[in-house]
Nucleic acid binder design. Structure first.
Lengths: 215, 215
DNA sequence: CATTTAAGTGCTCAATTGTTCACTACAAAT
DNA sequence: ATTTGTAGTGAACAATTGAGCACTTAAATG
């Protein structure tokens, strides 16, 4: 047996892939059969077994919709993108911004976001944060926006930064005078946060991008 | 009922996501129950119903493993299932758009932009435009921003759309009354564009995302 | 204190789904 | 001529799975 697919098998493999992309779960034997007008589940099953034997899928026994590990005719799809194109950068989205909870715990990283590297300046550490509140709307940063942040510990006047004040993370404009650091909101309804010697304060990074998703 | 998740619901949502990423298909009620030591499928089912009500998942009735359309706490569609192929989507950037006084028509396709597919819905054609002008600043769309546009020919009142008026492309809020279509800027200094029967007018798409790059 | 909401048990039932068997048919290779 | 691989029907069966009900517990709400 050659490890090449017959036309029929290729059709079915393609259908499984499409189905999963559309529905979020693989098809059942009967759903495949309906599509290809195969009346017997056994007919379908043997196609799947052929696909397993040839290494294109795995099937979890006795599990409904138990098709896993899709490959296509060219081999593993999962590796394909990373081999050919490497100009993407994966950015972790740092956990929930709830007051009082530690946010920068690295274990909190649940989701990543991949963006075109051309959006970023140099190589460096980036992370993303979902913004809460409207204190920066005049700078075009709205509640629910994602900000892309370049990690750094210092900032220049006028830059939009992400800072840690006490145990809260905040996005503000950085203003430093002779002996006073101000975190200035871009919204008339809010007042600057003044940093005195006592406050726990640190700069986490500079905002280098904003992403907003609408419905 | 608030649309926020309880701890239990978040745990379960996270588990579903992980399960799907590991296995390629969503878990059954009992598989979820086994994980969390919930003996009754009914207990699990009501968690899922809560997640549906709050808009984090959809469930296909009577379908095994019928959980679809995962969102996570950030509102992103969890697309790791499709990591195999299209974790990224290539979007053509088309010319520029007048967001102030309409200036530019569609130029040539310059560049493409690659973004994480979780930013997009699964279906549909997308393109991107670079916005010129400040007529939409109150909607958080600034001069120089990129808007991601889902191609469509119709719109609902209040949606931010990209439209063609004459031979110029513009980004505005769509407002339709009995017999009048208005393209409303989000900036007090500008007036709506009124579409009469004579104008050549067509909707190019709906703005589904905004990307801003800062220095 | 009554009510609501979240969380769960134990159970039954019906629908969905995977497994398996016997049999047919055809083309290609040994 | 016989085997092998592919492709299918039809039916029966068992396991998995989702749906639903009555009832319980606990915490929060008002």
């Amino acid at each position: 047996m050659k490890n090449e697919l017959t036309d029929r098998q290729r059709e079915i493999l393609t259908f499984i892939e499409q189905f999963r992309n559309e529905n979020g779960y693989p098809p059942t034997l009967r759903e495949i059969g309906r599509k290809f007008e195969i009346a017997s589940t056994f007919g379908v099953k043997r196609h799947l077994e052929a696909l397993v034997k040839k290494g294109f899928i795995n099937i979890e026994s006795n599990a409904s919709r138990g098709i896993t590990s899709l490959k296509n005719e060219f081999g593993l799809i999962s590796d394909k993108l990373f081999q050919t194109e490497s100009n993407f950068t994966k950015i972790p989205i740092i956990g929930r911004v709830a007051a009082g909870t530690p946010i920068l715990a690295i274990e909190n990283i649940e989701v990543s976001l991949v963006i075109d590297s051309s959006f970023l300046k140099k190589t460096g550490d980036y992370f993303a944060l979902k913004v809460r509140g409207d204190s920066m709307i005049e700078a075009g940063i709205f509640d629910g926006d994602f900000v892309i942040v370049s990690s750094r510990k210092e900032a220049l006047n006028g830059e939009v930064i992400v800072a840690m004040v006490g145990d809260e993370v905040t996005v503000k404009t950085y203003e430093r005078s002779a002996n006073q650091i101000s975190l200035v909101p871009q919204n008339k309804n809010y007042s600057p946060i003044l940093i005195d010697g006592k406050s726990e304060f640190s700069i986490l990074g500079k905002v280098t991008g904003v992403i907003r998703l609408l419905n």
